[in-house]
């Protein structure tokens, strides 16, 4: 019983972090119909940067997201303006290929600059845990979860309570309508891409503490995040949250009761089962496909 509660608690903590990481991806897809395959590489890039800064200065890695988040915001903005805006209007598959290429470039650069070795940031609380009754929650997991929730709440606030957020949501729902009321598509898209990238600032910093990583880890991460987004329904923020929770739970439960080796696979099996029953994902609305 304790095992089960422990596993569920850990699963939810991990799910929260996954939710943050997937939120950027789903936001970018929602606004631009771009599947940013480079999102995983962004995460590893940030993790690497965080690790280096922590290693050099000793500042807490999760706190360092204060630095990495604005950096990634700018990075995303520039990446959109320089690369993705060039292929606006061409088919969606081109953006997949472009961001895939971008991911490889980031991986290649990291390979050369940081080396092809596993790294992990280990702050002082790394091996400590909070004890709640019989269960113990690793401090790093808890801090990561809290940071993720704080950022998600901020993101939610921005999207629902500010003009910028409303503009982004308007552009998600009806680009031409948004343009009519003065929401410029390119500017909004760049902004959404920048915000989506900025979420990896926090996500990557958390990652550097919770998981060992090396340049090629981004494949694991992107397929995990894409899985969450497909599960939740592409473009849906609540979907990403719920999908991340489900997959976090599925993963920890398998690791607890089955074997660690299979936990990643369970992830993919859950996705396939959901797609079999509900092809549009849990929260994905079937869009009005006008045949006019």
């Amino acid at each position: 019983m304790t095992h089960l509660v422990q596993a569920i608690a850990l699963g939810l903590l991990i799910g929260g972090v996954y939710a943050l990481m997937a939120s950027g991806l789903t936001l970018i897809f929602g606004v631009m119909r771009i599947i940013n395959i480079a999102q995983g590489a962004f995460l590893i890039l940030v993790a690497m940067l965080t690790w280096w800064l922590w290693h050099e200065t000793g500042i807490d890695p999760i706190l360092l997201s204060v630095v990495t988040t604005p950096l990634m915001f700018g990075f995303g903005w520039v990446a959109y303006r320089l690369l993705l805006s060039r292929i606006r209007g061409s088919s969606a598959s081109m953006s997949v290929l472009l961001t895939f290429g971008f991911a490889l470039v980031i991986e290649g650069v990291l390979n050369i600059t940081a080396g092809n070795k596993f790294k992990s940031a280990t702050p002082s609380y790394f091996e400590e845990s909070f004890r709640v009754g019989a269960i113990s929650l690793p401090k790093a997991q808890v801090f990561g979860f809290l940071a993720a929730m704080a950022v998600l709440a901020a993101l939610y606030f921005v999207l629902t309570r500010t003009w910028t957020g409303r503009a982004i949501r308007a552009a998600t729902q009806n680009p031409s309508g948004a343009a009519l009321v003065g929401v410029g598509a390119t500017g909004t898209a760049a902004l959404a891409f920048a915000i989506g990238s900025a979420t990896t600032g926090v996500g990557g910093s958390i990652l550097s503490v919770l998981y060992p990583f090396f340049p090629a880890s981004h494949y694991d991460w992107i397929s995990r995040l894409l899985g969450i987004v497909v599960l939740g329904g592409m473009g849906s923020l609540p979907g990403a949250l719920v999908g991340a929770g489900i997959l976090g739970l599925a993963e920890t439960l398998t690791a607890t009761y089955g074997s660690l080796n299979w936990s990643t696979l369970v992830f993919y099996i859950v996705i396939m089962v959901v797609l079999l029953i509900r092809p549009q994902g849990l929260f994905g609305a079937k869009l009005r496909e006008d045949t006019v």
Binding site: L98, G101, L104, V105, I112
Partner: peptide, 8 residues
């Protein structure tokens, strides 16, 4: 790196 650049 080369393949990534080439793809882009």
């Amino acid at each position: 790196l080369l393949f990534g650049l080439a793809l882009m």
